[in-house]
Amino acid sequence: MLTLDHIYKWVNNGGRRVFLLNDLNLKVEQGEFLSIMGPSGSGKSTLLNVIAMLDEFDEGEYYFDGEAIHELKPKKRTAIFNENIGFIFQAYHLLDDLTVYENIETPLLYKKVNRSERQSRVADMLDRFNIVGKKDLFPHQLSGGQQQLVGIARALIINPKLILADEPTGNLNSKQSEEIMELFAELNKEGTTIIQATHSESNAAYGTRTIHLLDGSIVKN
């Protein structure tokens, strides 16, 4: 599904190059559930951002579904991202001013999906995550686990091919973490490709494959 080929990303710090990603090669197949592990600063988030096309890289080639992403205009890249990828954050990043329902609906608004279809898709999603009763609540009225559920529901509403999750359980207790991980495993079984970055061995174990990052390179595959 996606191939990263000799990816370099660096920042200049006092005349010296500091590598965030250093000659990174990665291939992810459709249907995989990949866990990326590594200590803080090893480049997990940077890698996810590069995969999500939210961040640029300085050297190397990136193919997504056969498209050469490194050759595309930013606008086209954004379009591919919006079409195919759902992103889940450690800090949930729900919009505070919107209700659960509206948060889930927002990506569809930006895609100009018509009203009746929006309604049915959001209703399906609420059903699926058992949060119908919470649809009119605002994020601050929910627990962390529930907020992350909404975050996942919002990522899934566009039927993405790929889900990127950056420490999705970092702010949750272990019971909530487990629930989220079970959900990921289930989604993966249904066919969604998932890439998660995590600190936790137990979370990584839910994946079908684990890679370890250190200083921007894969050290263990």
Binding site: A52, L54, T78, N82, F87, H93, L94, L95, D96, T106, P107, Y110, K111, R154, I158
Partner: peptide
């Protein structure tokens, strides 16, 4: 600013 970033990852265009 976080809201703006968030909306962008949710697919909001500059115009929107």
């Amino acid at each position: 600013i976080r809201e703006i970033g968030m909306r962008k990852t949710l697919g909001a265009g500059k115009g929107q």
